[in-house]
Simulated assay, not measured.
Amino acid sequence: MATKLLWLGMDIPDVQRFLGHDNIATTRHCAETTAATWRRNMIRSPTRPLAPAFGHSA
């Protein structure tokens, strides 16, 4: 969620407050972990959709 909010243009202190993190390092960690997972998955399967269509399983 943190990564998506940052990609949408929300400032990291606002993301921190929105997610209820006491420490901004937690917000940064969440964003970096999600971004790394996304990159790793794209390298493995660049043609796979990011998420199945709503109501359908992959």
Rank of each mutant, 00 (worst) to 15 (best):
V15I: 15
T27M: 06
L6R: 14
T34N: 09
T26R: 07
H29I: 01
A58L: 08
G55C: 03
L5A: 05
G9L: 04
H56N: 03
P52Q: 15
H21Y: 07
T37R: 14
R28N: 08
N23Y: 12
I43Q: 13
H56I: 04
T34D: 09
W7A: 14
R44D: 12
D22Y: 06
T37I: 03
T26I: 09
H29S: 11
R17F: 12
A2V: 06
C30P: 00
R40D: 13
A51T: 14
L8G: 05
W38H: 10
D14R: 13
F54P: 03
G20P: 06
T26L: 08
G55Y: 02
L5Y: 06
P52T: 07
L8P: 00
P13F: 04
V15Q: 01
I12D: 01
T34G: 01
R17N: 10
A53K: 15
V15K: 02
I43R: 15
A58K: 05
W7E: 11
W7Y: 08
P46G: 12
P13Q: 05
H21E: 02
D14I: 06
D22Q: 11
N41I: 04
T37F: 03
R17G: 00
T33E: 11
T47F: 11
R28G: 01
F54Y: 11
P52I: 09
N23A: 09
G55W: 03
F54D: 08
H21K: 08
G55E: 02
T27F: 03
W7G: 10
T26V: 10
A51G: 04
M10H: 08
R40K: 15
G9H: 10
I43F: 09
R44N: 13
T33K: 14
T26G: 02
A35K: 13
P13K: 10
R17Y: 06
S57F: 02
T26C: 02
D11V: 01
V15G: 00
A25P: 00
C30D: 03
W38V: 15
R48F: 05
R39E: 13
R28L: 04
H21Q: 02
E32S: 15
N41Q: 15
A35N: 06
T37E: 10
S45Y: 08
K4E: 11
T27C: 01
C30F: 12
D11W: 04
L19C: 02
F18T: 10
D11K: 14
G9C: 07
F54T: 07
T27S: 10
A58R: 10
T3F: 12
S45K: 15
M1T: 07
M10E: 03
G20R: 04
T37S: 09
K4Q: 11
I43C: 03
M1N: 01
Q16E: 12
M10P: 00
A58I: 02
L19R: 12
S45A: 15
L50C: 07
